[in-house]
Write a protein that binds this DNA or RNA. Structure first.
Length: 488
RNA sequence: CGGGGAGUGGCGCAGGCCGGUAGCGCAUUCGCUUUGGGAGCGAAGGGUCGCAGGUUCAAAUCCUGUCUCCCCGACCA
């Protein structure tokens, strides 16, 4: 068998690239750091998007769309925000090309009066609108989400994990009180956690970022962090409490019930196509992609096996009612009746693509009233009776979903431990994984740890019971342990 | 943006040091035989060797520049 995917233990990065390629999720584009999302990858994103969108609507949000281009002056209105994004913005300076012997060049006469920034995130353009929309407490809250592409001029890129242009959703809400905005921030963090765990089957830790890891312009950044198979953490989603920073920068005030004019409180929150990278590195194996049934574009593939036309007819007649029954149950099922490929080829291809369940039907099964079922996650094969097969398959999909989560959860917990001394930390961090340790809360200590171990504080647990101790580096007082890891 | 590696039919590679007009495997097309884990035989099609300059009678090969990808580092979702 031609082995097209590098083994994880040999070269994890290469494995990742091979999986993306073999599962036909995405290609590199001619422009550095940007990618073509192929139908398989986009179908996956559409499923993720669909589930998230429903969850946003269920929590009272509406979708809207704000422009790609942002006047340069807007970016400079919030000091922290500018500083955070200034170094990675694409800037539009001209509006025209002109032909020059066979080619084109930028027409210098088309230089823009005010240069435009391709959005790296939309706080500024959105808050400019919110100023016009908000006068009274009656106009609040505003709960808006947008699905969009954004551009960040990254130095080092990797398919899905960090690309210059990526797809995401960004929620932007405005509230009359701090309390309500903080609640919103945490509510959306919970939505992300639920989505990650229930749909992606990807266990996550939640908490708040330290000042150095915080979103530029936020008061607090909450996050979900997932542990990848190679021991590195991945920030999978963030929810920001923005305080009144943007309201002040864009002068957005409302008249409250007491007649006073007050600045509005804000949140923003987002997840991106990076989640696909997380999904790959949570479940996939040396055969290729492994997808959780709830997000898999195709949940079941049926592969007919036959030797001649008669058998082909017989096998398809046998399989078709089952396919219909599965469809009626809401299972996404595909019949792979291509005649130019052999069954073995199809098996390998569907495994690489991560289809959760494969049903093989051949003359033998027709004779015995059976089906062969193969699970993608465990690679187990079983012969089951055709009677009640649809029910069985639909149950099995749920089992796979749960099993994937449990396996990932167990893997994560196995590499999560507490460490007391810095020496022990330095030694342990070499093995990857999550490490809980005491930290004195200072930027200096955090920077020192990062410098010396390449590990960062992924989050400070929020509902963690306070457990006083001494900072592993300085010995100063610490109220609770924080979560460290090396990360993507 | 710094260090290292790499770009040759769709994919994976050889050729390069020693310049002479491009080859192998897989894939593709057609035919026949096959089909329960990546099929076999026969025939056919497909590449201005990443791009741009230069040296030369002649460049995939030598020189210069540039773009893209991978790995490591600094920076970030």
């Amino acid at each position: 068998m031609a082995k097209r995917i590098t083994n994880r233990k040999d070269d994890y990065s290469q494995w990742y690239l091979d999986v993306v390629k073999e599962a036909k999720l995405a290609d590199h584009s001619p422009v550095r750091g940007s990618m073509v999302i192929r139908p398989n990858g986009f179908a996956l994103w559409e499923n993720m998007k669909g589930a998230l969108d429903q969850m946003f609507k269920d929590t009272g949000h509406e979708n809207a769309y704000f422009p790609l281009f942002i006047p340069k002056s807007f970016l400079s209105k919030e000091a922290q925000h500018v500083e955070g994004f200034a170094k990675e913005c694409a800037v539009v300076t001209h509006s025209r090309l002109k032909s020059v012997d066979g080619g084109v060049e930028v027409d210098p006469e088309s230089k823009l009066e005010e240069e435009l920034i391709v959005r790296p995130t939309s706080e500024t353009i959105i808050w400019d609108s919110y100023r016009n929309w908000i006068q009274s407490y009656r106009d609040l809250p505003i709960l808006i989400n947008q699905w969009a592409n954004v551009v960040r001029w990254e130095m080092r890129t990797r398919l899905f994990l960090r690309t210059m242009e990526f797809l995401w959703q960004e929620g932007h809400t405005a509230h009359s009180s701090e309390k309500e905005a903080v609640e919103e921030t945490r509510r959306m963090l919970d939505v992300y956690k639920t989505f990650a765990q229930d749909f992606m089957a990807m266990p996550v830790k939640t908490g708040v970022k330290t000042a150095s890891e915080r979103f530029a312009g936020a008061v607090d950044t909450y996050c979900i962090e997932a542990m990848m198979q190679d021991g590195k953490a991945l920030q999978a989603g963030t929810s920001h409490f923005l305080g009144q920073n943007f309201a002040k920068a864009f002068d957005v005030k409302f008249q409250d019930t007491d007649g006073e004019h007050k600045y509005v409180w804000a949140t923003s929150w987002g997840v991106s196509t990076r989640l696909i990278g997380g999904l790959i590195m949570t479940h996939s194996d040396d055969q290729g992609l492994v997808l959780p049934p709830k997000l898999a574009p195709t949940q079941v593939v049926v592969v007919p096996i036959y030797r001649n036309d008669d058998q082909r007819t017989e096998v398809l007649d046998y399989a078709n009612p089952l396919i219909k029954e599965l469809k009626d149950k809401g299972v996404s099922v595909k019949l792979d009746d291509r005649e130019n490929q052999q069954p073995g080829y199809k098996f390998a291809e569907h495994e690489a693509a991560g289809i959760p369940l494969r049903v093989a039907v051949g003359p033998r099964d027709v004779k015995n009233g059976n089906l062969e079922l193969a699970r993608r996650d465990t690679l187990d094969k079983n012969i089951i009776s055709k009677d009640g097969a649809a029910e069985h398959i639909s149950d099995l999909l749920e089992t796979i979903q749960t099993d994937l989560f449990n396996a990932a959860q167990e893997r994560t917990e196995n590499v999560t431990r507490d460490v007391e001394s810095y020496d022990h930390f330095k030694e342990q961090i070499e093995d990857g994984g999550f490490i809980y340790a005491h930290w004195d809360g200072t930027d200096e200590t955090e920077a020192k740890i990062k410098e010396e171990t390449k590990a960062t504080i992924r989050l400070i647990p929020i509902n963690g019971e306070s457990e006083p101790g001494k900072c592993m580096v300085t010995g100063k007082e610490s109220v609770q342990k924080v979560l460290f890891a090396r990360s993507y």
